[in-house]
Every structure is written in C-alpha cells, then in structure tokens.
Simulated scan of single mutants.
Amino acid sequence: MSQAREVIQSLYDAFGRGDAGFVLGLMADDIHWMEAEGSPMASGNPYASPQQVGEGVFGRLLSVFDDFAAVPSEILAEGDRVVAFGRYSGVHKESGEKLDAPFVHSWTLDGETITAFQQYTDTEQHVRLMG
C-alpha cells in the first residue's frame, strides 16, 4: 500500500471515529479545499486552512446531520494523488430524512500532508436537505 493511500485511509478511519483533530492535523496550513460546485458548502470555496475546513465544511455538516459518515468503498493511489469512491450517509436532524449520496474525492499530498482536495457528489441531495 502506498504512503499516500495509507494517509487517506487513516483520514477516513479517524473521521469515522469522530477524531476531528487528527483529520485536520493531516492538512497543510494552506490547503486548497474545494467542495462540489452547486453544494451549499461551495460558497466558501476555496477553503484555505484546516480551520476554514473544520468550521465551513465539517461544522456545517455536523450541525445539520446526525450520524454523518463518509465511507469509501475503494481508494486508488498513484504517486501523490489519491482518489476515493464512496457514499455519504446521515440523518437530517429536523426532518429525519436520510442522506445517501455517492462521492468521489480527489486528494493531493506532499508526503503525509494533504495539500488539496476536490469533492464530486450528488449536490441535489445536499441542497434539498441543507437549503
């Protein structure tokens, strides 16, 4: 397994445990984080620090959804690039409606540090549930 793939697998594992400190600690201070076009969270694009990602992305998601998860089904790596295919899930706190959306995440690393992220997902579900 490549080092880059191991780093991204550890990120998803930590996210699943709710270890935000570990996840944010993997990010470069000047990360270039892009949410999918059309997503409610794309209004902050590009997020340019771990703090901005934590507040503008993770904080917003966790304020709207219970049991939010991003679970990869396949992770591919080539050099410093990693692509993960998976699904988002969660339960909208107010309506009880379930989120079940596919995603593709593209990651760029410098050693063990994440320098860039691009999300691709079904933004219609996010818009419908998050407004």
Rank of each mutant, 00 (worst) to 15 (best):
S95T: 15
A4F: 08
G90T: 00
G54V: 00
F103M: 01
R60S: 05
A69F: 07
G21N: 05
E112Y: 02
D29K: 05
P102N: 12
R5A: 08
A48L: 09
P46D: 10
Q51R: 14
M41N: 09
F103D: 01
G16D: 14
D122W: 05
D100M: 01
H92R: 11
L24G: 08
D13I: 02
K93G: 09
F15K: 00
F58A: 03
V83T: 09
R128T: 06
V57C: 15
Y12I: 00
A42N: 04
G18E: 07
G131V: 08
P50C: 11
S63M: 04
A116G: 10
Y120S: 08
Y120A: 05
S43E: 13
A14C: 07
G44I: 06
R128V: 01
A101W: 03
T121I: 01
T115D: 02
E35T: 07
G16N: 14
V53K: 05
G44L: 10
Q3T: 06
S43Q: 08
F58L: 08
E94P: 12
A101H: 04
Q3D: 14
V23K: 03
A84K: 04
L11E: 00
F65A: 08
L76A: 13
T115M: 04
E35Q: 12
V64R: 11
P102L: 10
D29A: 13
F85R: 02
Y88N: 03
T115C: 05
G38T: 00
S89M: 06
F117Y: 13
D19K: 00
F65R: 01
G86I: 02
R87L: 04
E35P: 12
G96R: 14
T108H: 14
Q118A: 11
P46L: 11
P102Q: 11
M1Y: 00
F68S: 01
R87D: 05
G21D: 12
D30N: 11
V82W: 12
A42G: 08
D29E: 15
Q118M: 10
E112K: 04
Q3W: 03
Y47Q: 02
I114L: 08
L129R: 04
A14M: 03
A116E: 02
A14K: 02
Q3S: 15
Q118C: 13
P40Y: 03
V82I: 10
V71E: 09
E37C: 02
R128N: 07
G96D: 15
G79M: 05
G96V: 13
H92N: 14
A116R: 00
Q118N: 09
T113L: 09
T113E: 12
G90Y: 01
H32D: 10
G79V: 02
D30T: 03
A28E: 01
D19R: 00
L62V: 03
V64E: 11
E112P: 10
A36I: 04
R17H: 04
T108N: 09
M130G: 11
Y47T: 00
G25Q: 03
E112I: 00
Q51A: 15
R81Y: 10
M1Q: 00
R5E: 09
G111L: 12
L24H: 06
D13L: 13
R81M: 12
F103H: 01
D19G: 05
T123N: 08
R128M: 10
H105F: 06
Q52L: 14
D110C: 11
A77F: 14
A28H: 03
G86W: 04
S73D: 13
G59S: 07
P50F: 06
T121L: 11
F85L: 13
Q9D: 08
